[in-house]
């Protein structure tokens, strides 16, 4: 068993797969943040559609990722490759992102909003000066969960032609190459752990000291 031996022997390949992996996650994150934070903000103001949207997200979340990849792969115009991978991962990011934005905004103490309104803040001022800053730690936690999740599920995109760390695991299994499997699994796990750790540190930093006591409770 010598997985770092495998890594050393195949540095070019491992590096390529790793970079591919990271770039896929980055692209997905870019689109997901724009799309789902906006959706989260919108549904926080329209309670009637909020329930529907959030349960839609949870349903999507229950579908095995491989099914979504496989299914969208068969849609004409998408096929194998990055486009499908991006689309599916963006869909997966919906649940944690929309939910955290919605829950974050809804968790703001109503008396604070009442006070803001009573002092003459407009709806948008309440949103951007009270709700968003107070929800921000929760939203960031949601982003953190999403990034970790996407990093993990992105491994499955290897089955629709993505050349990323999932491919090391997949090919390792088909070829019975244990070192290859472990190399893939270890690198992708380390990336996920590192992202989780770093974002956890950032989360602590960006949370207003006035809100920190709540997390400590």
């Amino acid at each position: 068993m010598n997985f770092y031996g495998f890594i050393l022997d195949n540095t070019g390949l491992v590096l390529e797969y790793t970079l591919n992996h990271i770039s896929l996650v980055a692209v997905v994150l870019f689109f997901s943040l724009i799309l789902w934070i906006a959706v989260g903000l919108v549904i926080s103001r329209y309670d009637r559609i909020a329930g529907t949207i959030i349960s839609l997200g949870s349903i999507v979340f229950c579908i095995p990722s491989i099914s979504l990849f496989g299914f969208f792969m068969s849609v004409p115009g998408l096929g194998l490759g990055r486009r499908t991978a991006t689309l599916v991962l963006v869909i997966y990011a919906m649940m944690p992102l929309v939910r955290s934005v919605y829950m974050g905004i809804k968790s703001v103490d109503p008396s604070v909003i009442d006070a803001g309104k009573g002092m003459g803040m407009t709806g948008l001022q309440i949103l951007f000066k009270i709700q968003v800053p107070m929800a921000w730690p929760m939203v960031f936690a949601g982003i953190r969960v999403t990034v970790v999740l996407i990093t993990g599920i992105a491994t499955m995109a290897t089955f629709i032609g993505e050349k990323n760390l999932g491919r090391l695991i997949h090919q390792g299994i088909t070829r019975g190459n244990a070192d290859m499997i472990i190399a893939g699994a270890v690198i992708v796990s380390l990336i996920a752990l590192a992202i989780d750790y770093i974002m956890g540190r950032i989360e602590k930093k960006i949370t207003s000291p006035g809100l920190r006591f709540e997390a400590g409770k």
Binding site: D114, A115, K117, G120, M134, S208, G210
Partner: peptide, 22 residues
């Protein structure tokens, strides 16, 4: 309404201070 409320002081029992601001 917003303009009106800015000319009226408002104090409530729960106070409603913004926890993230000094």
């Amino acid at each position: 309404p917003a303009t009106l409320r800015r000319t009226i002081g408002y104090v409530i029992q729960q106070i409603g201070l913004l926890p993230h601001r000094t």
